[in-house]
Simulated scan of single mutants.
Amino acid sequence: MEGMISFGNKRSYDDFKKQIPPQVLPLFDSIREFCFSLGENVVEDVRMHRVVFCKSMTFRWFIDVEPQKDGAVIKIQKNRKEPIEIIQINKSQQISEFGNFIKEAYEQVH
């Protein structure tokens, strides 16, 4: 699958999924799918406790997602001059409620 590049510890998303609570996994998967749908230059970096999505190999991240017991914490970065936005998403919410924030960050990060 394109866009699946891991830096550092070379963990795969399949390995990472094992630590996501089962009730949160559908939400996490939908966030991941949404990020990849933004463009062919989206890069995934699977880290120890979270997954970071970047724009191209310049590694400018626009979203950092960490699973929680009942949802996910999403950190959104549009550029280095603005503060990072933090959003808590509950497992019952849909990514479409926050899609515009993520898409805007993807488009503005450079």
Rank of each mutant, 00 (worst) to 15 (best):
L38W: 05
F62W: 12
S56R: 11
N79P: 12
P26H: 07
F28H: 01
C54H: 13
E97G: 02
F62G: 11
F98D: 00
V109Y: 00
N79E: 13
F7Q: 00
A105K: 08
I87F: 04
P21H: 01
N79I: 12
A72Y: 07
K81W: 15
M1I: 08
V65S: 03
I87K: 10
V46M: 00
D64T: 06
Y106S: 09
P21D: 08
P26N: 01
F59Y: 11
L25D: 03
K55L: 09
R11V: 01
D45I: 03
N90Y: 08
E85N: 08
Q88A: 09
V52K: 06
E33R: 10
Q108K: 14
M1P: 10
I74W: 05
E104S: 05
K78Q: 12
Y13T: 01
Q94F: 15
I102V: 11
R50A: 06
P67Y: 06
G8F: 02
S56F: 13
N100W: 10
H110E: 15
R11A: 00
Y106L: 10
R32S: 12
M4G: 11
I5Y: 12
I5H: 11
I76D: 02
M1E: 11
P21L: 04
G39V: 04
F34C: 01
K91W: 00
I86M: 13
Q88Y: 09
R32F: 07
F98V: 03
K18G: 00
P67L: 03
E44L: 01
Q19T: 05
I84F: 14
G99N: 07
K103Q: 13
I84C: 14
S37Q: 12
S12G: 02
L27F: 06
G39S: 06
E40D: 15
I84A: 14
F101A: 04
D64P: 06
I63C: 09
